[in-house]
């Protein structure tokens, strides 16, 4: 039977992270001359969410630039949505070959929280490791354009009088944590309603089924005038007008809610890193080149997202992000777990 408590997975995770960094140091020495030929066939990218979603879009967008630095490789995509990403991670760990030809492109924020909450068999640090992030975006709260609510202050005041409903793609998600933390800090009452994805969640807010919605900010920016962004879970609003000049949440309420963001990035089997350090080195270096290539930022901008969405992070930075996320999951996990009968 499943239970909903969080067991500290940080230690095992940290151990894995240290090992990953070690493996990287090992791989820095040129072990083989044959590595220049990598990859000889298509690279498979597993996406733990559905086709047509944000991760799918970003993976494909990134790959168009990445292939330049990766021997003109071609990419194959497969989708394993389900149980907040758990299905995809378990499949990646158990069923795909650890040979550096199989990578996972995930949503680091929500999926690390999922790992803490749902304890899948595939363990971060032991079975797989995130080795880079390509993008990063803050969480926000927004309302549909027809909503009577026009500011975060107003929303919180309302939520002190009655329970305010908030659409979210899923409970184990940094955006959900943000809303619950805001409720805890201000005494406002929020009810999270999981809609299973960014698109249906936004739709619920736009059509007025729920009072507001919480999602990563690019979802809201792309919806342009259809929505009004009320607040951001970041230190400052670097998007300005694009994000409706919404104030950061802590500036309004003087609270100390941690910054909440989600990165997208690649994960790889730990075993693949150890067995094929030469291949892994090529992957890691080429990802970095592609992520820092202005062509990638151009593509992102062309697709209607802010340029600042692109934020490369290497292995250490990504490991640190994952640690922060695990700490958050531990702190706020009890708010997301169901009340026992």
């Amino acid at each position: 039977m499943k239970d909903f408590t969080i067991t500290p997975t940080r230690r095992s995770f940290l151990k894995g992270g240290a090992m990953a960094v070690g493996a990287g140091a090992l791989s820095a020495s040129p072990l083989s001359k044959a590595w220049a030929a990598f990859p000889e066939r298509n690279i498979s990218i597993l996406i733990p969410t559905g086709e047509g979603g944000g991760a799918d879009r970003d993976a494909r967008m990134f790959a168009t630039v990445w292939r330049k630095y990766l021997n003109n490789a071609n990419f194959e995509y497969s989708y394993y949505p389900g149980a907040a990403g758990q299905v995809g991670y378990e499949f990646y760990a158990a069923k795909s070959e650890p040979d550096c030809y199989n990578l996972l492109f995930g949503n680091l924020g929500p999926e690390i929280i999922m790992q803490a909450m749902q304890k899948p068999k595939a363990t971060l640090g032991k079975d797989f490791i995130y080795f880079c992030q390509t993008t990063d975006e803050t969480m926000c709260i927004f309302v549909g354009k027809n909503s009577k609510i026009t500011s975060i202050q107003q929303l919180v005041d309302e939520a002190k009088k009655r329970v305010v409903t908030v659409a979210t793609s899923r409970l184990p998600h940094p955006a959900s944590i943000g809303v619950l933390a805001l409720g805890e800090a201000t005494g406002a009452k929020f009810q999270l309603v999981p809609f299973g994805g960014g698109n249906p969640s936004a739709m619920a807010a736009i059509t007025g089924e729920v009072d507001c919605c919480t999602l990563p900010i690019t979802n809201a920016i792309q919806l342009d005038k259809e929505v009004l962004i009320l607040t951001l879970f970041s230190k400052q609003n670097v998007f300005g007008e694009m994000a409706d000049n919404a104030p950061p949440v802590n500036d309004v309420f003087g609270t100390k809610i941690p910054e909440l963001s989600s990165s997208r990035g690649f994960a790889i089997h730990v075993k693949a890193m150890e067995t094929y350090p030469d291949r892994f080195q090529i992957i890691e270096e080429s990802v970095k080149k592609a992520a820092l290539d202005p062509e990638y930022a151009d593509l992102v901008e062309k697709a209607g997202m802010p340029r600042s969405f692109v934020r490369y992070g290497g292995r250490e930075e990504t490991v640190a992000f994952a640690q922060d996320m695990l700490a958050l999951a531990e702190k706020y996990g009890s708010l997301l777990a169901p009340k026992k009968k």
Partner: peptide, 15 residues
Amino acid sequence: AIGIPGGSTAAVMMI
């Protein structure tokens, strides 16, 4: 009309 795909086919078109 809104910019949100109603199903998986529309989502792929959006990409």
